[in-house]
Simulated scan of single mutants.
Amino acid sequence: MSREFRTLLVDYRPDRVHVQLNRPAVRNAIDQTMIDELHLVCGELERGPRILILSGTNGVFASGADIAQLRDRRAEDALKGINSGLFGRIARLPLPVIAAIDGWALGGGAELAYAADFRLASTTARLGNPETALGIIPAAGALWRLAALVGEPVAKEIILAGRILTAAEALAVHLVTEVHEQDALLEAAHALADRIAKQDPLATQLAKEVFHVPAAAHPLADNEAQARLFESEEKFARMTAFLERKKR
């Protein structure tokens, strides 16, 4: 599959899609065109599930939303949930999403990373939400995703006091799970994708789906997903192969 994009570089592979945010003149700031193009990628991944790797270009993940566009937005724009709608869609993609964070991931760029299932960082990564300094709030996920990821005290430092986390600090609070040198970051992201790709795709999809259902939906949602998998051909094939290896 091939498509021309203005703000993204997209590498399609059989089991994954690597999307690079590519607006280097503005440090990959997220504008409406990028939002629209990421929605197109989401549509493709919803129709044909694959792992998604998100990264930036030129040593930057994403410096935030495009301030030139953001400044002109009014109340009716806020109510449309332009960024939050996209990031929610990314979070709900059938297979896991990996954010490979190099350099700045601020504001909307950080919120995009929070929507991923996995966050890997380079040693130069810096993550934060400086929105209140610009007279707005981080309304595309940080106000609830970040506390779930790092706990309320650290989330409030970032959101209410403008703290910017270094890669080491992000690792210490488990906002990222790995830190690599810049030239090894994408290799590490693909290595993680390789591990995910070895799993049964349907089991991985259902595990992700049930992981995120409300607490009240457990254990019924778990049992229903397991019932579906207990009838899958892949389950029988994988378990048979396991038992055959054990005999050797």
Rank of each mutant, 00 (worst) to 15 (best):
D117Q: 13
N28K: 07
D11M: 06
A225C: 15
H190V: 12
P201I: 11
P153N: 09
V213P: 04
Y12D: 14
D222K: 09
L134H: 10
H218S: 14
L40D: 07
L40I: 15
R89N: 02
A207S: 14
G48A: 05
Q199D: 13
A100I: 13
I30V: 12
E131C: 11
K156S: 12
E152T: 13
L175F: 09
D66R: 10
K156M: 08
N223H: 10
R50Y: 04
D72L: 12
L79A: 12
T240S: 13
L192Y: 00
A29K: 04
P201W: 02
G64W: 03
D200V: 04
L206C: 03
A217T: 05
A139N: 15
F87I: 03
E152Q: 11
A155S: 14
Q205T: 09
L52Q: 03
V176Y: 05
V173G: 02
L185S: 06
L206T: 08
L95F: 01
A29S: 14
D222C: 15
L95D: 03
P214Q: 01
E224P: 00
L171Y: 04
G88P: 00
L171Q: 11
R73M: 14
Q69P: 00
T57P: 05
E169H: 06
E187Q: 13
G43D: 07
L206D: 10
